[in-house]
Design a binder for these strands. Sequence first.
DNA 1: ACGTGGCCCCGAATGGCTAA
DNA 2: TTAGCCATTCGGGGCCACGT
Length: 242
Amino acid sequence: MYGDKFINFVSKGIGNYYIGTGNPNSNTLFIGKESAIHSTDTFTRNWYDCNAQSWAIHINTNSCEILEYFVDNNHPLRASWGRNTWSKYQKLSDFIRDKESEPYYVDFLKHAFSTEINDAPMKRTSEAEKSSIIQRKLLFKNSKFIQDFPVVVLACSDYIQNNDDIREIDDIFGVTYCGDEEGKYWYNKGNWFFLHYSPDRKKLVIHTRQLSADVKNEMLEKMGSIIRNHLAEIGEIESTNR
DNA sequence: ACGTGGCCCCGAATGGCTAA
DNA sequence: TTAGCCATTCGGGGCCACGT
């Protein structure tokens, strides 16, 4: 059910780092800033800290996480639905699969895997501890599991950089920016994304902002169609029951 | 009438730049 | 070196159009 690359990534992570959530066998990886968990929320903190351990159990028992569910009135995601990150991931996933969005329904976890570039959860990004991001970038660079996804969405804005001096995205993911004409999508100062491809064009890495409040639907729709076309071109239109 | 989603504005925080 | 200024980002509040 799970491949060696993932099993290896999980076994090294027990007691060390956060793995993520969703379907590790999918073809799309979402990388956000950090999990939005309040410092006083011990229950969710505990869930986060035990993430690698619980993946080890899933591997040993051939089970998986709950990958689809309805966000009812009592669900913590309900109040901020439409603004929070998971509702935006869901919408993007719907565009990728060219599917109508169902209100308050989560199933993008079946079709994508989600993790964070900062392994230090905090409710607000401004208060988050950011000193360990550099180590996690190295972890991602050296992980076969992370590198194998043919589509990576870096939804973490300034936590990772590609500019005149620093080419972190190129370096970590083995890709290059394909230029302003083909690869730059700019809607306003808070809505933009950039395309990067591997030399053989099989891997697409998209750099964008944290997908949460004030994200334009138009941007998600365009991003989704680009990902969909890419998956079709490399013959990865996903199977439905992985 | 009401709920939902899209959008805009505001505040807090950060980081870069510059002038004193 | 440091204070001040500005641009950027993200969460929250709230308004409004639209459809049922």
